[in-house]
């Protein structure tokens, strides 16, 4: 299949509900994963707000995508990273972010990996392509 094995990164940089970027970025993640790309996903800048626990979009009248984010692993989106500095700047504790799925055997939550900006930069440097939302 096309794109098999190539390293591609999707970044989510924008706050989750004021615009559609985060939501449509998730669609891209699902498709890229289904194309067997070597996909990594990074939440940074205001994008880290998408992973903050306890969100409810009912009052906004929009379909929330928190359930999709909480099940990324089920869609084979497993390499998910969060920028530590972005969390800190927004006063979000590293344990106040949602899990992206559950371990099938143990039912334990699978958490996105919190990394320093320098580590994320290193990952970016080795990508074949980066798609930025």
């Amino acid at each position: 299949m096309a794109a098999k094995g190539k390293k591609v990164m999707v970044t989510v940089r924008k706050a989750p509900h004021g615009s559609i970027y985060a939501q449509e970025a998730i669609e891209v993640m699902f498709i890229f994963a289904s194309y067997d790309m070597d996909l990594s996903v990074v939440f940074l800048d205001d994008g880290v707000l998408a992973l903050h626990k306890g969100q409810d979009t009912q009052g906004l009248g929009i379909k929330g995508f928190m359930a999709s984010l909480g099940a990324l692993v089920d869609w084979e989106v497993t390499n998910v990273y969060v920028d530590r500095q972005s969390l800190r700047e927004r006063n979000i504790a590293e344990d106040a972010i949602i899990s992206i799925g559950k371990n099938e055997a143990t039912d334990a939550p699978i958490m996105p990996k919190v990394l320093d900006s320098a580590e994320i930069a290193k990952m970016m440097a080795v990508q074949h392509g980066i798609v930025s939302f």
Binding site: S19, F32, M37
Partner: peptide, 21 residues
């Protein structure tokens, strides 16, 4: 067409350049 076309474009290109907000 579908998002799969974006995946194919990226696969077949040396660079993908995004223009957004």
């Amino acid at each position: 067409s579908g998002l799969g076309q974006l995946a194919s474009m990226i696969d077949e290109s040396d660079r993908i350049v995004t223009f957004g907000d």
